[in-house]
Design a protein around this nucleic acid. Sequence first.
RNA 1: GCCCCCGUAGCUCAGCUGGUUAGAGCUGCAGGCUUUUAACCUGUGAGUCGUCGGUUCGAAUCCGACCGGGGGCACCA
Length: 495
Amino acid sequence: MSEPKPDQPGAEASNLLAERREKLDRLRTAGIDPFPHDFPDREEIASVLAEHQRLEAGTETDSVHRVAGRVVARRGHGKAAFIDLRGPSGQIQLHAKADVLGEDAFSLLDDLDLGDILGVEGRVVVTRRGQLSIEVSSWQILAKSLRPPPDKFHGLEDTETRYRRRELDLIANQESREIFRVRARTVSSIRRWLDDHDFFEVETPVLQPLYGGALARPFTTHHHTLDRELYLRIATELYLKRCVVGGIDRVYELGKDFRNEGISPKHNPEFTMLEWYEAYADYAKTASDLESLVSEVATDVLGRPRIERDGKEIDLAPPWRRVTLRDAILDCTGIDIEKETGRESLAAAMEVELEETVGWGKLVDTLFSKRVEPTLIEPTFVLDYPVELSPFAKAHREKEGVVERWEAFIGGVEIANSFTELNDPDEQRRRFEQQAGELDRGDEETQPYDETFIEALEQGMPPTGGVGLGIDRLVMMLTGTHSLREVVLFPAMRD
RNA sequence: GCCCCCGUAGCUCAGCUGGUUAGAGCUGCAGGCUUUUAACCUGUGAGUCGUCGGUUCGAAUCCGACCGGGGGCACCA
């Protein structure tokens, strides 16, 4: 942060900044370091509160504690003052009194501002109104705040500022702090579940010579020394399968994928994805694993396998509903995709214009996501997708033209995708060639041919089930939010 | 990329059928108050009304373009 320049608009726009700097100077003049190096032997505010529950109003204990946190409110009373101090674990009231602190230490409190980081020591007392407090016997400023905090009562409402300056949102809004706490607990609970089920965590390249594993446009970047284009990964799929070939039978990776596509309440250019692969399993096993994982993680994080969404309770406990893609579409729209097997006839049944680049599979996908997906509120597995949409899934063991694949939906949002993985290298080669055909028709979101991956399959990959779970979307479900930006700390924004 | 809505003090908001010097609460500053908790009381400071241009005697207010945000459509997970 640079020094404010008086000529610059904004620097002197408010004297609020100048006044805080004057206080900073006064502290220094008084020989006080406004940015000391530490504050040892501190206790969490929550543990101090927990230790002194249910004391009578007016109680004065001999129990001395040291706590630190941010000053969030102040109420002066002449020769006394109340200060609300907040840390990550909770908030506690400080009672500063001139007769306890001495005139000098008390009057220096005048140079405190809302937002300052403060460390105090004192005994626990309970006020006449029954408010547990620390009667301050000494205090120390731990960091001077040079900018005013958001409104102490209304918080920070402006959506743009909440996303661009998330630290202010976190300071001002309890709900926002809680969302990210749920997110952190969710991620750690998922890892625990996978580790407990003998999965092996790996890290594969983010910068890739060839992207793959999903149908999406990639970001490109350039490596100077190698002098070549690299792609930011759109999925971890192909590398993780190579791990399975290598004998890591249960493997997972939890990290960021990047897709160069539009931004919406359900899409951020970078997002957190979990993929796991289990050798000798198929898509029925991955489905039962996913419903167990989500249900157990929800119980771990929320205390129950249920969420609330738009005022409705949704039960996440297994078993989830299972419906084939064909039946789901038939139920919602009356269109039978087993009968409308041509591009023209399906487009006609859908009553839409048929565009050059749109294949039959894409039409099915459009039909499904427009008409069916929003209705899938209760947790649902949609099974058996057309082969056109699924270049890495194995053909169905009984049904013609479809692959063993499911997508899982909660609250009308897709949260996971899975298949019985294709492990026949020759069939995989044909799928890549078919995707190349799509590319020729002008579809930019297709799968490039990956010879290294084919060679890995030729080495021999056991039958395998794989899953991709969208972590951001799962957190949306667990927090009852409706935008990815509410669960991503620093979402993508324009300059 | 297209359509709709929004942008006033550090924060939360009034004002917007064009008309004196743009208001309030919180925050800030000065003062009072030793049990308050959205503390209170007195006084007081703070705004290129998103930006640029246009209409007009006069624009926060009407019109246009642009910037930023939100929602929807398209595309996607």
